[in-house]
Amino acid sequence: MRLRAWDLAMERGGRRLFSGLAFEAEAGSALIVTGPNGAGKSSLLRGLCGFLPFASGGFALEGGDGERTVGEEAHYLGHADALKGALTAGENLAFWAGALGGESRREACRAALARVGLAHVIDFPARALSAGQKRRTALARLLVAHRPLWLLDEPTTALDAAAQSAFAGIMQAFLDDGGVVLAATHAPLGLARAKTLRLGAAEGGA
């Protein structure tokens, strides 16, 4: 399995964000997208999900299911946590597990929450969780259904140091299983074998 992109270019609001962008990520490797604010990191991820059009170029998940788009093969974690405040953390996870074709039994959700260190809040309404706890519940969504590709946008926002290193362990385990991670971030994620893709270097943040 390999995520390959070639000659990608994107425009937002008449401004060219990036052009001639090419990268490859083999199974078991992570690609960290860095760059100043407004360099197009989030837009690149949303483009790979199919939410935004690229002006040129293309991308493919080689060795994946040819019937499905890259977005359908991927877990996308955006800035928003995709949690419903009225539901408990466990119900939120059980819904995503069911809706994404994963394992939605309560024990599976509890196990996923335990891996992000939140097993004790399984029956708390999501609106009562702190920002970091919401983010960790959102990260647990990556664990309740399998996708070979993770597209993560600032995954460690609001996480404390312990949760950041726990999440580094989760990502490393996923990579060791042959997954591919593409993460846009400003903070180092603490991964071995991670390549870096720097956006907006030419413009220099101008």
Binding site: G50, A82, L83, R141
Partner: peptide, 14 residues
């Protein structure tokens, strides 16, 4: 749309 759930649903199996 606001809480990001739609982003996940669009690429889901349904």
């Amino acid at each position: 749309h606001d809480d990001g759930s739609l982003d996940v649903m669009i690429n889901g199996p349904l």
